[in-house]
Design a binder for these strands. Structure first.
Length: 280
DNA sequence: ACGGATTCCTGATGGC
DNA sequence: TGCCATCAGGAATCCG
C-alpha cells in the first residue's frame, strides 16, 4: 500500500514525465473517485501547466499554474500509469480499474501522453482546487510534521504527548505524517520498541532511536522505489523494498535479532507483527 | 479525548 | 474443482 516511500517515488516519477507540460483534457469514468466538486473538477485543471509534483505525507500534490492544485490520496491501491492513447468516453473501453484520465500535452517534439489514475479498490480520492483552496483544506486535515523530516525531539514531544499504543499513535497522521502499516512495523522492530506499549512512556533516548531507524528505513525504501505489495507499482515499475521487510508479512519467521518466531496481533485494528522478546 | 466498530471496495485466500 | 465466507487495509465517521 502506498505510504511515504511509495508516494515519494510516485511524485518523483510523475514530475519527470509531467513537469512543464500542460493538462490538456480531463476525463472521469468513476465519479466517486473525485472528492471535490465534480462539476468543476475538469475546468480547474484543464489548460494548466504542471509547475511541481510533490509528496505531502502519503498524498501527492500537483502544483499547477495560476495557483491551482490537484491533490491525491492513494489509500490502498491507487497508482498512476502512462499510456500513449486517449480513452473513449465509454468506461468499458478503458484499461482495467482506471477511473480518471489526464491528457498531458507535451512540449514539441515530444508525443502527448495520457496519465491514468488506476485504483482497484477505489478507496483513493482526487481533489481539484482553485487558488488558496487547497491550503484551507489541508489546514483542516491537521497533518503532523513529515515523518522523514521531523527530528528526534519532534518524535519525542509528539509521540509522548499522545495516549494510546505506540503503533496506533505512529499511524495517526495528525501526529506524524507518512507512516502506514508496513513502515510502522518495520521501524518499531528495528528500534526494538513494542507496538503495544503506551506512547506516553517513550523516553527521549528511545525516541532518538525510533527517529534514527525511521530515517534509515524510509530513506532506504525510497532508494528501492518503495515496497511492492498488493500490486503497488510506480510509473516506472515495481519497487523492491519488500525484499528487505523484516516484520511486515513475516509472522512466524525468525526475529532478525534473537531468532524467536515473530508474532502477529492487532493494534488499533491493524495487523501487527513484532518480536515479544526484543521489542520493549 | 479516547477506543472500537463501521464504511468504502475488490481480489486473494481458506475451508469444506 | 467449485463455491462461499473471510480478510486486507487508510481514514472518515459515528458511537459509547
Amino acid at each position: 500500500m502506498p505510504e511515504l516511500p511509495e508516494a515519494e517515488t510516485m511524485a518523483r516519477e510523475l514530475a519527470q514525465k509531467t513537469l512543464g507540460h500542460k493538462i490538456a483534457e480531463v476525463q472521469v469514468s468513476y465519479p466517486a473517485i473525485v472528492a471535490s466538486d465534480l462539476s468543476s473538477f475538469s475546468s480547474l485543471l484543464t489548460g494548466r501547466k504542471v509547475l511541481q509534483v510533490r509528496r505531502l505525507g502519503k498524498r501527492i500534490v500537483f502544483d499547477l499554474a495560476g495557483g491551482h492544485n490537484l491533490l491525491i490520496h492513494l489509500k490502498m491501491t491507487g497508482q498512476f500509469k502512462f499510456c500513449d492513447f486517449w480513452p473513449g468516453s465509454n468506461p468499458e473501453s478503458w484499461p482495467p480499474h482506471c477511473h480518471a484520465a489526464f491528457k498531458i500535452k507535451k512540449n514539441s517534439p515530444q508525443k502527448d501522453e495520457t496519465l491514468f489514475y488506476q485504483d482497484t479498490r477505489k478507496f483513493g480520492r482526487l481533489r481539484a482546487f482553485g487558488p488558496g483552496e487547497m491550503d484551507e483544506f489541508l489546514a483542516g486535515l491537521n497533518l503532523g510534521p513529515d515523518a522523514l523530516s521531523a527530528g528526534p525531539e519532534d518524535y519525542h514531544r509528539l509521540l509522548s504527548a499522545s495516549r494510546g499504543q505506540l503503533k496506533a499513535v505512529l499511524l495517526n497522521q495528525s501526529v506524524l505524517a507518512g507512516f502506514g502499516n508496513i513502515y510502522a512495523d518495520e521501524t518499531l522492530l528495528a528500534a526494538k520498541l513494542s507496538p503495544l506499549r503506551p506512547a506516553m512512556s517513550l523516553t527521549l533516548n528511545e525516541a532518538r532511536t525510533l527517529q534514527a531507524e525511521a530515517q534509515r528505513i524510509l530513506t532506504q525504501a525510497i532508494e528501492c522505489r518503495g515496497s511492492t505489495v498488493s500490486s503497488y507499482t510506480a510509473p516506472q515499475g515495481a519497487g523492491s523494498f519488500q525484499n528487505h521487510h523484516k516484520a511486515y508479512g513475516q509472522a512466524g519467521q525468525p526475529c532478525p535479532f534473537c531468532g524467536e518466531k515473530l508474532l502477529k496481533t492487532r493494534v488499533g485494528g491493524r495487523t501487527t507483527v513484532y518480536c515479544p522478546f526484543c521489542q520493549k
